[in-house]
């Protein structure tokens, strides 16, 4: 559906934010993983036609949206990582405002869709309150509602679950799975588990480059390697994928062909393991003391 070809972007301070990005994004949910500063937001903003790349093209069903951004905007629902709202506007008024901007001018359709989205995001009861007075979670739910206005074919969501409580987070997951049947939903998040649970495809981005991209199940099949969970710190620090705590007790996830110690138990590989493996490969610190 979306074809990204040789996308490059260098900021004026010399930061190479995008390095020769090439991706084919089909319909369905696609996760974008990467550490802070990897270039995820730059890529998402570029795909949302909010900023331009220095070179490269982005084809939406064959149309280069870097040259014809309106083609993208007409089908896009976008939720940035951070956003604000106009003062003195109620939730419904602001959704109405956004609906009109998205071309939903028929009053009946407008009202129906807004009511639907308010219900979907659990904002119906506060629809007539000012958005500036919303809590963090409500603010985020408003963002999700506005992104869904107009039934976009492409949804780009940068950290959509930020500030949501577990139930709201689950509700969003359900909704995304529901709507992604015939749409492209590009999801960026630090919660790797979310991507593993929701996405069919994922791409890992580091230092402006796509270091891995494939179906999630393919990313999980690391050949001839096993993942172990142990309480003992292995001698070979390079084999440690991650260090976690459970009830205050330190636990290590270790990638090794052989059992690192007798207490180590073999566990299924997760996307997070794969992500940490890529971090280690790229020389990132994986916070193992």
């Amino acid at each position: 559906m979306l074809s990204i070809n040789s996308l490059n972007k260098v900021y004026s301070d010399g930061t190479h934010a995008l390095r020769d990005i090439n991706l084919q994004l089909p319909t369905g949910m696609i996760g974008l993983l990467g550490p802070n500063g990897a270039g995820k937001s730059t890529l998402m903003r570029t795909l949302a036609c909010l900023q331009s790349a220095d070179t490269g093209s982005v084809l939406l069903n064959g149309v280069d949206i870097t040259k014809q951004p309106m083609k993208m905007r007409r089908q896009l629902g976008y939720l940035p990582q951070y956003f604000g709202v106009y003062p003195n506007m109620t939730c419904r008024a602001l959704l109405q405002h956004m609906a009109i901007l998205k071309g939903i001018t028929n009053k009946y359709e407008q009202s129906q869709q807004i009511d639907n989205l308010l219900a979907l995001t659990n904002l119906s009861e506060v629809a007539d309150k000012k958005v500036t007075a919303f809590s963090g979670g409500m603010h985020q739910r408003f963002g999700i509602a506005q992104a869904l206005l107009g039934s976009p074919n492409i949804l780009i969501m940068d950290e959509p679950t930020t500030g949501l409580d577990p139930v709201e987070r689950q509700r969003l997951h359900n909704m995304l799975v529901n709507i992604s049947q015939n749409k492209l939903v590009l999801l960026s998040t630090h919660i790797v588990e979310d991507i593993e649970n929701l996405c069919t495809y994922a791409a890992i981005m580091m230092r402006g480059e796509i270091v891995e991209s494939d179906r999630v199940d393919a990313l999980l099949s690391v050949p001839a390697r096993n993942v172990w969970l142990t309480r003992n710190k292995p001698q070979n620090k390079r084999s440690i994928l991650s260090m976690t705590h459970y009830m205050g007790i330190c636990k290590y996830r270790v990638m090794s062909d052989v059992q690192p110690d007798s207490s180590a138990e073999k566990v299924n590989i997760t996307l997070q393991d794969r992500y940490y493996l890529e971090l280690a490969k790229q020389g990132y610190d994986n916070a193992v003391a």
């Binding site: 007409r74 896009l76 901007l101």
Partner: peptide
């Protein structure tokens, strides 16, 4: 108002 990205991304 930090709503610039929402507005800019709309098909206007």
């Amino acid at each position: 108002s930090q709503i610039h990205e929402l507005i800019a991304a709309s098909p206007v």
